[in-house]
Amino acid sequence: MRPILLKGHERPLTQLKYNREGDLLFSTARDKIVNVYYSHNGERLGTYTGHQGALWSVDVDPTSTIVATGAADNTIKLWEIRSGRCIHTWNFPTAVKVVQFNEDGNMLLAITEQRMGYQGTVYVFPITIDVEAKQAEEPIIKFSSPENKFTKAGWSYLNKWIITGHLDGSVSKYDAKTGELVQKISVHEKEVTDLQFAPDMSYFITTSKDKTAKILDTKNLKVMKTFVADAPLNTGAITPTKDYVILGGGQDAKDVTTTGSRQGKFEARFYHKIFEDEIGRLKGHFGPLNTIAVHPAGTGFASGGEDGYVRVHHFDKSYFDFLYDVERMRPE
């Protein structure tokens, strides 16, 4: 599994995202730019410039026409993928931490940071997937959670709910039409650092600084699986076609020094999704892993590090062949 190393950023990576077909890989970092690569060979297709601050989040619409980005310059920008032209900008009072299209590509979810007297807020904007269209200025819905900072968010299936992760380790479920809080549960002991859905959005994985990752049922927020790691986790993804999850994180530089640990634990870790065991690790990054994205066809994954590098991996045969005895005994 020899990776392709992408050196398109000068600063730590913040998010990676494949498009629906998996042929394009988008990356955002603290260096104010968005890069897009061909995922099979790592060739850079383009760089989108225009943000005035660190970028926190990126997402692609399901037709691969428009990319949305959220940044510390308090804006969301929409970009035409083909030309790299900025086609719309929304302004907010604080930084935008998350952007995500719904499954139809006609709504965009965003969360803004709680700061300077402003509450962290979830917004949903209507989207027209047309680079010449005028996008609506006003959100369809907007709600806050003053006592409980949002860190991550995502759409459920059928645009039914918005699932949010929080600074205190809890996970909430809001009605996506009314913004009403439906359910809230304690999941982690520390900050929720990532929240990624399975392909059909019926379950999702959360990662936390508490060194664990969990799989939750979208419908009732029941914790179904727990994965225990030996370092704070920043990111986790569910792999299609194989029953694995891939987790990334690592000790912060300051903690490595104070504990005297030479081992920063900067590997991508593979766990079995059903049996919860760690089954493998992949070295490479020189700092914590900040973001992992899995190819939508399950053929590989990409990791983005605090070291400023993106590593794109294509899975080899042993990855697909690996089975537990019980999986061999009871083939699906």
Partner: peptide
């Protein structure tokens, strides 16, 4: 999967259309 298929009533959203066979 059965419950979701019923709820979707045969309408597969764009984002999921490549999931069946890659």
């Amino acid at each position: 999967e059965a419950e979701l298929a019923e709820a979707r009533d045969g309408v597969i959203p764009l984002a999921l259309q490549s999931e069946e066979d890659g």
